[in-house]
Design a protein around this nucleic acid. Structure first.
Length: 615
RNA sequence: GGGGCCGUAGCUCAGCUUGGUUAGAGCACUCGACUGUCACUCGAGAGGUCGCGGGUUCGAUCCCCGUCGGCCCCGCCA
């Protein structure tokens, strides 16, 4: 199933498999028991006496002669046991080896006769002629297979997570985690070269006002008190700026106790960056440079500068703050065409201050009634009352709403030959999400997403606040985001009009990260907190340490955080975060391999001054 | 919190539609044959709490209810 907004990149890019190891003639992995990785042996090694160690991936016992594929981190190599070079008792034992047994062996690299080469194997031109071997790690029959037959499906994900040690032996996952390692090293190199300091921040900390639920850790020495795991190192990195470190980064683990998705884990990793004396442009070009390096790490060139779109434009033209710009399908406003008409749905929306908005779909007339019904379902699930359908027929516009439209109004909608027009009436918060979903759904259906195209985009000028259902304000980004200086004058009169100095980076409709310039004026910070409904007493209690720090000489500063897991997932061409995390959690935030969470003994609870409410 | 899909041998699946003898296949496993295979091949064998609990029924893998677990989505979450 295609994930919403998460297009696996293997469709986009040539499947680029980074070499798992060096293929230098002499292995960097040599130890007393092993001279090479078997998977890195090539024709250039022919004649070499080698000692290998690895897992029995597959065996082929032909009676007098035995072949086995030995697997290690670098790949597979065929080992042959033949009376011409192998003692009889060794062949006998080799024929009985079970899959996933760990063995060490001694032998010689030999070229295979031409007709016996295996073009599907990287080491298919050679084989290792074994003289002897030792079982160093006996294996029971594995619970899930590591070697799969062609076309054989993966075991159920539940089993893969339960037997993660076996699943991680598969090349796909090894490749993904090695890619992730490279991305992390490239990140460190890139930022280090630019003067950024990697500084660790606490894991046991105070609740951060990020909006998500905190994971909470009880204190043994302070009855009834708790730490929280960080949702991000936000406040710490600001404190580091105030302390004068000037440029900071961290490949930081973050924790959020919210329900999961394929692209969401309860603990995840961010490339967290903060710098002083900078403008949004500095952060933007730094991020562009870094993403170029990261994409380069898996072989992809990206544009040096990304497109830009203001939040207002993005919402108006695409109904989303992270639009996928690989295809057009822009939204338009059809309100004027319906103003004064007898069309009830449109009228009530307009009367309530809403609008009629929609998209024109070139070639959309070919969509069947059933398909449009399905699209309507998508719109409804995003909150729309329904879809107003219009298309051009022989006698003008057709559709239930057509008869309410005057000639000039119909003209105005500019529905072309063969096009379908889908409209949603309602308030902004109804039309935008609905049309965003419709736009994506239609693009998928009509194959309008170019597989070879990539869209990198900055969305800027986010609003600082959003009006909650209960009438209060809350932060769009977080409470420490600086307002645009031009808009500070609206803070009291029209806070929703205040733009933030915040920016998100979006790739193919997926948010890769976001950041902002932070408030470094304690008075302004207090002001923003009070607008958020946090009275000064509470502000002092929760953020006093920040407010105090801002008062003792805080440089202007700002930064960004990028989702490491998502970037790794996209570059690996994976469809789930779980495939780029060594030990991920299930959608119920459970760890199946080690079985966490689990109950603790009553005496431990007593030490922590805790009681559980069972039933 | 809500919706959808799934759960049968160690693994991947069939059987369930329309309840009824002994629940099948491929791979893996055990035993045997086989001297150039590469998903080796061939023969034989072992392997099942049909996720769990309850209900309907003379009888439930199959129908109903509940529950547990996994996945996807909405809410939630940058």
């Amino acid at each position: 199933m295609q994930l919403l907004n998460l297009t696996p990149l293997d469709a986009l890019f040539d499947p680029h498999i980074p070499a798992l190891t060096s293929t230098a003639p002499s292995s960097r992995f040599a130890t007393a028991t092993r001279s090479h990785l078997g998977g890195e042996l090539r024709a250039s090694h022919v004649g070499a006496k080698v000692k290998l160690g690895g897992w029995v991936h597959r065996t082929r016992n032909l009676g007098g002669i035995v072949f086995l594929d030995l697997r290690d981190r670098a790949g597979l190599v065929q080992v042959s046991f033949d009376p011409k070079w192998t003692p009889a008792d060794v062949i006998e034992r080799a024929g009985k080896l079970g899959l996933e047994t760990v063995i060490t062996l001694e032998g010689e690299v030999a070229a295979r006769p031409v007709e016996m080469r295996n073009a599907e194997m990287e080491a298919g031109e050679i084989e290792v002629r074994a003289r002897g071997f030792q079982i160093v790690g006996p294996a029971e029959t594995p619970a899930i297979p590591v070697a799969r037959g062609k076309g054989e499906k993966l075991p159920a994900e539940e089993l893969r997570l339960k037997h993660r040690n076996l699943d991680l032996r598969r090349f796909e996952l090894q490749k993904n985690l090695i890619l992730r390692h490279r991305l992390q090293q490239a990140t460190r190199r890139f930022l280090d070269e630019r003067g950024f300091l990697e500084i660790e921040t606490p894991i046991l900390t105070k609740p951060t006002p990020e909006g998500a639920r905190d994971y909470v850790v009880p204190s043994r020495v302070h009855p009834g008190e708790f730490y929280a795991l960080p949702q991000s190192p936000q406040l710490y990195k600001q404190l580091l700026m105030i302390a004068g470190f000037d440029r900071y980064f961290q490949i930081a683990r973050c924790f959020r106790d919210e329900d999961l998705r394929a692209d969401r884990q309860p603990e995840f990793t961010q490339i967290d960056i903060e710098a002083s004396f900078i403008s949004p442009e500095d952060i933007i070009s730094l991020t562009e440079g870094m993403l170029a390096v990261l994409f380069q790490e898996s072989g992809h060139d990206i544009p040096p500068k990304f497109e830009r779109l203001s939040y207002a434009d993005a919402m108006e033209r695409f109904g989303s703050d992270r639009p996928d710009l690989r295809y057009a399908l822009e939204l338009f406003d059809a309100s004027e065409a319906f103003r004064g008409s007898e069309f009830g749905i449109a009228n009530s929306a307009l009367a309530a201050g809403g609008r009629v908005r929609g998209i024109r779909i070139p070639g959309g007339a070919t969509l069947s009634r059933k398909q449009v019904d399905e699209i309507e379902l998508v719109a409804k699930s995003a909150g729309a009352g329904g879809l107003i359908r219009l298309k051009r027929g022989a006698s003008g516009l057709e559709g239930p709403a057509a008869k309410f439209l005057s000639e000039s109004a119909a003209q105005r909608l500019a529905v072309g030959e063969g096009a379908l027009c889908l409209l949603v009436a309602g308030a902004e918060h109804v039309t935008s999400p609905a049309l965003d979903r419709v736009r994506q759904d239609v693009a998928q259906r009509l194959s309008m997403v170019p597989e070879d195209k990539r869209s990198f985009l900055w969305v800027t000028d986010f609003p600082l606040f959003i009006r909650e259902q209960n009438g209060g304000l809350s932060s769009v980004h977080h409470p420490f985001t600086a307002p645009n200086p031009e808009d500070i004058k609206f803070l009291d009169s029209a806070p929703e009009k205040v733009r933030a100095l915040a920016y998100d980076v979006v790739f193919n409709g997926t948010e890769l990260g976001g950041g902002s310039i932070r408030i470094n004026d304690p008075a302004l910070q207090r002001k923003v907190l009070s607008l958020l409904g946090i009275d000064s007493q509470t502000a002092q209690l929760r953020f006093g340490f920040l407010l105090d720090a801002l008062s003792v000489g805080a440089p202007p500063h700002g930064g960004i955080a990028l989702g490491m897991d998502r970037i790794a997932m996209m570059l690996a061409g994976a469809s789930s975060l779980r495939d780029v995390i060594a030990f991920p959690k299930t959608t119920a935030a459970r760890a199946l391999f080690e079985n966490a969470p689990s109950a603790v003994p009553p005496e431990d609870l007593r030490d922590l001054h805790l009681q559980t409410m069972t039933n």
